[in-house]
Design a protein around this nucleic acid. Structure first.
Lengths: 130, 130
DNA sequence: GTACGACTTAAAGTTAGGTTTATGTCAAGG
DNA sequence: CCTTGACATAAACCTAACTTTAAGTCGTAC
């Protein structure tokens, strides 16, 4: 299996090496193999970084990603706990999407009228007493 | 017209009075009337706070909200500038929604299988070489 | 007239999620 | 050998968006 330095992985993942070290430090990534003190990775780290990136762009916090990605230490069955968390996250994401769509609708509404600012077009929100 | 103290507005809007002062300080809310030093609001502030809340839950930063809500000081026509900004925001929101839906799909996929963690189910992301 | 609660300000503190800096180690090339 | 470049660590720094704190001002109730 081919091995890569942190610099090479950082370049391929398009993220900063210091961010990778940071993720390892906080336990988001597992400690990796070392050769004379230096981190050595194989390709599989790229999938993890891709997942982290995706979760981050979906608005999950590092802490949430940790909980979803890592092992489950408590007394529930891992898979039950996982499903509970993931189900809750899916619901949150639906709410998040709804919030964005609502704001998007507000913006589009003002784009459709002669207003020059949201403030001027404040009626879009409330009691539209024409 | 009926008037309210900052405490009453904070309670009705469900936000901290110190956040309202903060918004005023950074110019997100206009300076309001004072009676013997104390801020006095009428109902209309609630609409503005509602808009701010909505924009925030849609993921806009305070700075972005400022730009969208306030006057436009530069040399473009206000309404042109507004439309440029709002159009860009609408596109960003579509991208944000797509990112959340992608992550939601990943979560739902693992919920549909026997995996006990996202990490274990890493294949959901990449080359699904079964 | 004084205690109280709600208000005021400026300034310092907080959290997340990194980045930057200072200092040091190491393998390879010239 | 010695310089270079990529790596290592710990600790300091950074930004956003507030919150908290410290110290003071009001009006009202007792």
């Amino acid at each position: 299996m081919v091995h890569f330095s942190i610099g090479q992985i950082a370049a391929r993942a398009g993220i900063n090496a210091s961010a990778i070290r940071y993720y390892e430090r906080i336990g988001l990534l597992p400690a990796c193999e070392r050769v004379s003190g230096k981190r050595v990775y194989d390709e599989s780290i790229l999938e993890k970084l891709k997942l982290i990136h995706m979760a981050k762009s979906a608005g999950l916090s590092i802490e949430e990603i940790q909980t979803l990605v890592n092992d489950f230490p408590d007394n529930m069955s891992p898979s039950t706990r996982w499903k509970t968390l993931a189900t809750r996250k899916v619901i949150e994401m639906e709410q998040r999407i709804a919030a964005i769509q609502a704001m998007k609708a507000v913006l589009e509404k003002t784009l459709d009228c002669a207003c020059s600012s949201l403030d001027e077009c404040g009626r879009v929100l409330s009691t539209s007493r024409s």
